[in-house]
């Protein structure tokens, strides 16, 4: 059956449509990383939307192939450099997600995530990029604007801290 595709532009540009499609396709993936960084549903949504807002204007220049890497870099650097000042109380999002965000995050925060939350922001960002996003050391360095040696040392420190975390030791003991 022949299908007729009706494109509803609503006065919006093709670039904006592309941005919308990107957000629809990759927004949840960005949210997952943001949740690991923040440990909170709404803060994760705020972080994603702030990163998207900062990146929105660059859509036409960066293009669809490179835009995810661009947004990811904005998301992580925003988290690292602005967290302390911007995210303690201010919620820049006017629109709340459809789903209620009163989920008790502690239920989802297993001991590993709780231990992750104890890491310094820089180490936490490296861990999420390396072990959740599966980026290489070089790609992680590029995202965070640091050198590969720093990525290695941050990873090493983070793994040492996680290994020695009482939360994870307790988990190990529970399974013994």
């Amino acid at each position: 059956m022949e299908q007729m595709v009706v494109r509803v532009t609503d006065g919006r540009s093709a670039g904006t449509d592309g941005f919308d499609a990107f957000v629809a396709a990759r927004g949840d993936a960005l949210w997952r990383s943001a949740w690991l960084l923040t440990g909170d549903h709404q803060l994760a949504e705020d972080l994603v939307q702030t990163a998207l807002a900062k990146s929105w204007r660059a859509w036409a220049r960066v293009g669809p192939d490179s835009f995810e890497a661009y947004v990811r870099r904005v998301l992580f650097t925003t988290y690292i450099s602005w967290w302390r000042r911007k995210w303690r109380g201010e919620r820049p999002t006017a629109e709340l997600p459809e789903k209620a965000t009163t989920t008790v995050d502690t239920d989802a925060r297993n001991d590993l995530v709780a231990a992750l939350a104890d890491l310094p922001r820089g180490q936490k960002a490296v861990v999420v990029l390396r072990y959740f996003e599966d980026l290489t050391e070089q790609q992680t360095a590029d995202v965070l604007g640091i050198n590969v040696g720093t990525v290695k040392s941050q990873c090493s420190r983070a793994l040492t801290a996680l290994r020695s975390s009482p939360r994870l030791q307790r988990e190990d003991n529970d399974h013994e």
Partner: peptide, 26 residues
């Protein structure tokens, strides 16, 4: 660590207005 992080993340909330909200925020 890879497996633990993948297992720990909850399902994202549905937010069809994410792109529009980002635009407005921009």
């Amino acid at each position: 660590l890879r497996e633990g992080l993948a297992d720990a993340v909850p399902p994202p909330p549905t937010n069809p207005d994410r792109a529009r909200a980002a635009e407005r925020l921009a």
